[in-house]
Design a protein around this nucleic acid. Sequence first.
DNA 1: ATCCTGACCCAAG
DNA 2: GCTTGGGCCAGGA
Length: 123
Amino acid sequence: MGARGRDSRKLDRGLMRLGPSEQRDAAIRRAVRQIPRGKVATYAQVAAAAGYPRHHRQVVQVLRKSGDALPWQRVVGAGGEIRLRLDAAHEQRTRLEMEGVRFRGKRVAMDEHQHVFRTWEFD
DNA sequence: ATCCTGACCCAAG
DNA sequence: GCTTGGGCCAGGA
């Protein structure tokens, strides 16, 4: 069987063909990588920027899988709230503060650090 | 197929 | 502020 056989996703013109969920996860990873140091975005915003508006929960799964390969600390809950528990939450806050992110109470000062994903390119 | 879980979100009260 | 309920989606058992 050729490239079109049982494992048709194997390759196509030398490129790995991704299934729907893999393509989605890849888009999510790209979006997360776009957040610069000192800025943050919410799970929902990342999902939307990736092109999957209602998949905020999947963003969590992707971050868990990726580990330190992504700047996971830059993704927070709605309103700038940290949603991790205990130690993990503390680590996220520390990492963000280390990047210069300021907090007001328990949440990120979103008016200063909200990353706005670019939707249109200007030329 | 069903049930459960999760680094979620949001409108209500 | 906080709690609750419903909605959302995908993975794993």
